[in-house]
């Protein structure tokens, strides 16, 4: 039975994407045809302007610019986020102090406040500060949804680091640098890398905040797709193609998780988070911004 549920869940998750690929390759795909009656490659010869993937690949579509912007902003957000969140995570993981619960709640708050409410406020603030419509503004704005997630997952990673080990090393004459170089970094690196990867994804997926703070001037793949989607009817090939491009960052992350970070992310390792259910919640929750 478990195997059945597993296959069902996997099929339900993955099968929809097959239709997306077909939709992106269609030229004319009317009801009730199961497959397009005319494919993109059959029509592209006669088209006076680029159609389907030809358009997506052309500079006019700005698809590549969008992907590059997405990657640059998400990369910068990840770096800034790590720089801010890691020290806080260390403190939360290893120290006890008065008001710790309050601090933890504060750092979790952006998860519980609807993104739209944050976006509407940020849009105005960004105008007043003068960063509206700029990469800087979007970068700063993205730190909000990324931060709570990073703090909690990094705290979970830090909890997993046994400080007795560091003490033992120091007793045996290791310098602070040695501890960092030979103990902390190798032991923490996979967990931190996984955290950073998810932070990157969170930033790449933020829509409403980017639209409102970026004022249409900062085009990421997510905002490009959002602008093309509108209720009702079928999905046109170009929108389908943009949806596929928007799937890319997640697919890359999946491959990295499966191949490179396998040891850190299988269930046994994840279960380490179980000591702190909240951390487990955030670890995955922030993938649904």
């Amino acid at each position: 039975m478990n195997a059945g549920i597993r296959s069902l869940a996997a099929a339900l998750a993955a099968l929809p994407f097959a239709a997306l690929v077909i939709a992106s390759l269609a030229f004319r795909w009317t009801w009730p045809d199961l497959l397009p009656s005319t494919w993109w490659w059959e029509a592209r010869g006669e088209a006076r302007l680029p159609i389907g993937w030809d358009y997506v690949a052309s500079p006019a579509a700005r698809a590549w610019v969008g992907l590059a912007t997405t990657a640059t902003i998400a990369g910068a957000v990840t770096v800034v986020g790590l720089a801010i969140a890691w020290p806080a995570a260390r403190v939360l993981a290893h120290e006890r102090f008065r008001g710790k619960a309050v601090v933890e709640t504060l750092l979790l708050a952006p998860l519980l406040v609807p993104e739209l409410a944050i976006a509407l406020g940020l849009a105005t603030v960004a105008v007043q500060v003068g960063v509206a419509g700029s990469w800087w503004g979007v970068l700063l704005a993205h730190v909000v949804p990324v931060l709570p997630y990073l703090v909690r997952t990094l705290a979970a990673v830090e909890v997993g680091f046994d400080r007795d080990l560091a003490d033992a090393a120091r007793v045996h004459g290791a310098s602070a640098w040695d501890v960092l170089r030979y103990l902390r970094l190798p032991l923490l690196a996979p967990g931190v890398a996984a955290s950073a990867l998810f932070a990157f994804l969170v930033s790449a997926h933020v829509v409403v905040v980017t639209v409102l703070v970026g004022q249409g001037r900062v085009e990421t793949t997510a905002t490009q797709l959002f602008a093309r989607l509108g209720g009702g009817g079928a999905l046109d090939p170009i929108t389908a193609a943009f949806a596929l491009l928007m799937t890319l960052p997640g697919l890359v992350a999946l491959v990295i998780l499966q191949r490179v970070l396998r040891s850190q992310t299988d269930v046994a390792a994840v279960s380490r988070l179980a000591r702190d259910p909240g951390a487990g919640a955030d670890r995955t929750r922030t993938l649904t911004p």
Partner: peptide
């Protein structure tokens, strides 16, 4: 594969 929905945005 079952994780895919988590790794794509709502759009």
């Amino acid at each position: 594969l079952a994780q895919l929905p988590l790794l794509v945005p709502y759009v």
